[in-house]
Amino acid sequence: MLTEIQSRESSIRPTRNRVGSESIVLNIAMDKQRPIQKTLSGSDPDWVALMQRVRDHQDRAAFSDLFTHFAPRIKGFLIKSGADATMAEECAQDVMTTLWRKADQFDPTRASVATWIFTIARNRRIDMLRRQNRPEPEELPWGPEPEPDQADVIALQQDSVLLTEALKTLPAQQRDLIEKAYFGDLTQSEIASLTGLPLGTIKSRIRLALDRLRHLMK
């Protein structure tokens, strides 16, 4: 059941030059590449491997593991974004069903499973709360090689683990501000103050993955 919820579109006012605007700079030593204690094969299950089993073998046991871990997080995320519990539960099921339906489109050299799930949940939220589509960029050409290089996958997944850890160590006030932005709760000028997010090396890694996809098609 869908209920009417006030749209949260904020007005957009990008500042033409960023100099002089008050900004919060987050000090995170992400680029130092400290050794990772928590590896992909450590305490967390290997979500990418589970996704690949869903993709290649329509593996329901793997799907169930993903569901058990992620569905309560999606539901929590949607409640924080302004959905009531019933709606959030329904949408969490929708998001997990979309994960199954679009499994072929997951690219582990560009996103962790949590990131990919976030993008599906965000789009579902916009659809649910605003009754709008979210225009998506044109999909990049997929190369003839079905499997990406394992080293690239591991590097990106490790970057994602670092990012999650980095967010946890931020002062509570800064973390709250970032979370509010992703729950759809910030105005554009508040978002403009969020500079220096702890992206670490992830941007350059994604850039390389995009270059590789473009190159494969030439």
Partner: peptide
């Protein structure tokens, strides 16, 4: 997007 993923990772869970 990957920060959104980190938020999903860290967010309070709501039991389904």
């Amino acid at each position: 997007d990957s920060i959104g993923g980190a938020i999903i990772d860290n967010t309070e869970v709501a039991d389904v």
